[in-house]
Design a protein around this nucleic acid. Structure first.
Lengths: 200, 200
DNA sequence: CCATAAACATACTGGTTGGTATTTTTTTTA
DNA sequence: TAAAAAAAATACCAACCAGTATGTTTATGG
């Protein structure tokens, strides 16, 4: 029983270090040796817990990235308050709260999507699951906003959800190219303008 | 003189094949050997014309990608017609006109941004130049729209330009995850809603 | 037409990569 | 406590990679 806990802890450790390196340097540029050097464990340990590089990639997407999106973009949508303000708050605060590292290296999910989204079906569907989850929760809160009259009743929920996600992931990429926040500030103005269109 | 022409043709051939492979498989996953196999020339020929992999990367960005954006997203903005309709047309028609390959592999520029945008300053600024060019032309046509009264006079041009670009690049990434156009259709609805906000 | 240089080919190198085979160490269980 | 199983370490491999050194062919210019 003690063994199971240790085994799980090792898997988590490997996934944690792998996520950091994937985020910093990209998936293809990160080797198994790179990852295991960070864990201070051996390559043998890696292949005892994961059967291939693909598997650690999928584990990072399914564990680390999914949790990240859930914690910072989805769960905050369930906070009390009217739907419109909540949506505006979540996107705005997130954008304003990024660390320098997060500004420089973009969105880890978007990085995966653009590096591996067209490579293998396994990556595709793992990433799609997260996007669909995010999108569905956005649709849900937009619908709530219609009922409580904070959002216009004729708002196309799916379209707005997809447009919000697209723009957000897009700006995370663009920000990599700059070394100041001007582009973020302009984006926030553009976003605010967009949201006004659906405000009740 | 005949030699110069041949030399230029060879460089173009290498850049063309390199672009195709970078687009299909990504920059890091494409080797010099891969590229030169496509050209039916040798590795010696490559290193005669380019001094490193980084240089062909920059050449592809500066030649192929810049031209692509210019031809399909910037020059069409200069067609006759009112500014608002032109903007809507360019984005809409582009999105509706993508080949299957372009749908599956996303935007080559966005791929570069997300794969290399946080790696080296050289890639960063080469890509930023293209984005800035695109952004400036969008600002220009929005300003024109204000003058000719097809676009609201209080529209924040920079913000709208950045938001349009962000959303467009974002959806190009998301589309990789799906194998149908539903996400594009929803995006178009979201875009149309956005543009209404700035319509005079 | 010959010397020179440009264009291209061939063969190679040192380092890295994902993955495997095998052994040692640690934990569990009967 | 001994046998079995899990966890981890060590050593290795064939393939690949960016880049180089050196040779050969082809065009150019005097």
């Amino acid at each position: 029983m003690q063994q199971e806990i240790k085994s799980e802890a090792t898997k988590q450790l490997i996934a944690e270090k792998a996520f950091n390196l994937f985020y910093k340097n990209g998936f293809k540029s990160t080797s198994i040796d790179n990852i295991m050097k960070e864990t201070s464990l051996s390559k043998g340990a890696f292949y005892h817990h994961f059967k291939s590089k693909k598997e650690i990639g999928l584990a990072v997407i399914g564990l680390k990235i999914q949790k990240r999106v859930m914690d910072v973009m989805i769960l905050p949508l369930k906070e009390p308050g009217n739907a419109y303000d909540t949506i505006e708050n979540v996107f705005t605060k997130r954008l304003k709260g990024f660390s320098l590292f997060e500004k420089q290296h973009g969105c880890p999910m978007n990085n995966f999507i653009n590096e591996l989204g067209d490579n293998e079906i396994a990556y595709q569907s793992a990433l799609k699951n997260i996007i669909e989850d995010w999108k569905n929760h956005l649709i849900q809160i937009i619908e709530r906003g219609k009922l409580e009259r904070s959002i216009k009743h004729d708002t196309p929920s799916e379209a707005v959800a997809i447009y919000l996600i697209s723009a957000f992931e897009g700006i995370r990429g663009l920000r990599k190219l700059y070394n100041n926040d001007a582009v973020f500030d302009e984006f926030l103005t553009g976003l605010s303008l967009y949201l006004k269109q659906i405000k009740f």
